[in-house]
Design a protein around this nucleic acid. Structure first.
Lengths: 235, 235
DNA sequence: TGCAGCAATATTGTATACAATAAAGTATAT
DNA sequence: ATATACTTTATTGTATACAATATTGCTGCA
């Protein structure tokens, strides 16, 4: 199942296409948190029926990229400061160990793939396409989880990376240093060397760095969120 | 979202009812791995349309309690030995830390809830209802994650517990000692005492014990699985 | 008998139609 | 002029209808 999700050419899975398109838009920050995702609207855009749109939205809701409110509709998720903190706490718990595993298992081909990711990331940054760079940075982390060869934990990390995109959209503080490809580079080196200890520590400090670039104190305060938060008549 | 999932009375969420009913049946081992879950059939049982059945099945597929094969249908998941091992590896990574957190945060009321769980577990075992006992044992672990007050990790643990049910159905070795409520009792004591270190270690050894009661060497070899594995024409 | 190809059946994938709920607008009364 | 009740509109929730695919059974032939 999970393998299928990764590797298949997917001749005709319309739902997945919609899922991927929406997820990409969110990851690249083209869809802002709390944006309403009307079923008819999306259906018209992709020329599919509401049936498949609903399936896609439910799929995205499961990984918490969108939030569905009964009889209200689907919205791009808007993590609270608390949720945002939790996402990075969970990443700190899972990813260092995963990087260690990756260091013990990576093949030369895997290293090539990682370096390729970094190169693309640089290219995107040079062009000024921060959205794409952010997305690639996330996929870099997912790639490490894949190399670690633990499907279950990889799936968890995938959802955390996805949500990180939203967290960054809401709580990013600094202007520059968007994805510290320097850290990524060092990490690849450790993994290539099979240096498990170093890989684990580098990943840990990388996540600490990321965390320190976020500011969870002030909350989103988006129009849509405000409105729904004020009326506590939620069922 | 996740909070809603826990606390709301849910006046009319038909889909969730179907999800819960099917999940319970799987957890209690009334539905065996690889069982076909026809849409019409389930719809007739619960008097709902295929629309909601499909939504429910997709929801269950996401937490990997069922596997959906395109144009083939939905089946109760049947974890491979490898997947089974991964589930418990992930639990070993997440749950000890979570138990530690729970020990640092638990209120007297939380302790009551945990003790209540254990009591129910005993009662079910006395009646000989192993399915219900297993389900309660799983909910005990989820309860600890709830006390730890980390929604994100709790959700991960919930999916792992759910899959553990299937793993146990397929790979359980021993006859007796189904849920070692002794271990649960000691764990509650440590949490009640706020003894973080002990709680973490007890959870770790508890999971090791569970793992040692499983035998991943021989694979399921179910009729349905065999058939689909032999024909590698999957898309 | 056994197999190949085709026909019939059943099941899933998708689209549409109807029902229920929420949101918005309007009119009336104070 | 504001607030409240009602009406209208829009959107989601659910059921059904149709299309596509897979499975099964049959027929004919070697």
């Amino acid at each position: 199942m999970s393998l299928v999700h990764i590797s298949t050419p997917k001749p005709k899975d319309v739902t997945q296409k919609v899922v991927d398109a929406l997820a990409l838009a969110i990851h690249e920050h083209r869809l802002a948190p709390a944006t309403k995702l009307g079923e008819d609207e999306i259906g018209e855009i992709y020329n599919v029926s509401r049936t498949v749109v609903r399936a896609a939205l439910q799929s995205l809701a499961h990984i918490q990229l969108v939030e569905i409110q009964r009889n209200k509709g689907a919205f791009v998720a808007s993590p609270t400061p608390r949720e945002a903190r939790e996402v990075f706490e969970a990443r700190a718990l899972l990813e260092p160990r995963t990087a260690r595993s990756a260091a013990s298992r990576a093949t030369p081909n895997d290293i090539e793939i990682l370096k390729d990711h970094i190169a693309k990331e640089h290219a995107a940054l040079d062009v000024g396409d921060n959205g794409r760079a952010l997305n690639l940075s996330g996929r870099f982390h997912i790639e490490i989880a894949r190399i670690a060869d633990q499907d279950t934990i990889r799936r968890f990390i995938e959802t955390l990376i996805a949500r990180s995109s939203l967290v960054i959209a809401l709580y990013w503080r600094r202007e520059s240093a968007l994805c510290e490809s320097h850290a990524h580079h060092a990490l690849v080196q450790a993994i290539a060397d099979g240096d498990e200890q170093n890989a684990e520590e580098l990943m840990q400090s990388h996540l600490v760095d990321l965390n320190s670039a976020l500011d969870f104190r002030d909350r989103p305060a988006q129009t849509l969120n405000l409105r729904e938060l004020l009326q506590a008549t939620d069922q």
